[in-house]
């Protein structure tokens, strides 16, 4: 679920990114961001079919951390349904989103 390649951390987002899943990612990602030198954080949404405002909050929180570290955040393989939520929330202005 978490893969590091140099200073890039890739996180495989689960099928449903709700409050429950967001809390798990937040805990694990922040531990890795604190203990390793990460400059690029990539969320892989290829398996994700659901995202609500808790997922948005988690993405914005990671953006704040990476921004403070001088790094960047990306979301890749975003489905149409999840993309709709990301656009509506405005998080697409902060992180680079690549829809499939």
């Amino acid at each position: 679920m978490y893969k590091r390649n140099g200073t890039t951390l890739m996180i495989q987002v689960p099928e449903e990114l709700d409050h429950h899943a967001a809390e798990e990612i937040r805990t694990e990602a922040d531990f890795l961001l604190k203990t390793q030198e990460i400059r690029r954080l990539v969320f892989d949404f290829s398996h994700t079919v659901f995202c609500d405002s808790s997922g948005i909050g988690m993405l914005m929180g990671r953006y704040k951390i990476m921004h403070a570290l001088g790094g960047q955040v990306q979301a890749v393989h975003v489905s149409e349904n999840v993309g709709r939520i990301l656009r509506m929330s405005g998080v697409t202005k902060l992180i680079l989103v690549e829809e499939d």
Partner: peptide, 14 residues
């Protein structure tokens, strides 16, 4: 502090 985005009701309304 819990990273609530403040968008819950916005999504319900939308």
């Amino acid at each position: 502090e819990l990273e609530r985005s403040g968008m819950g009701f916005l999504f319900m309304e939308a």
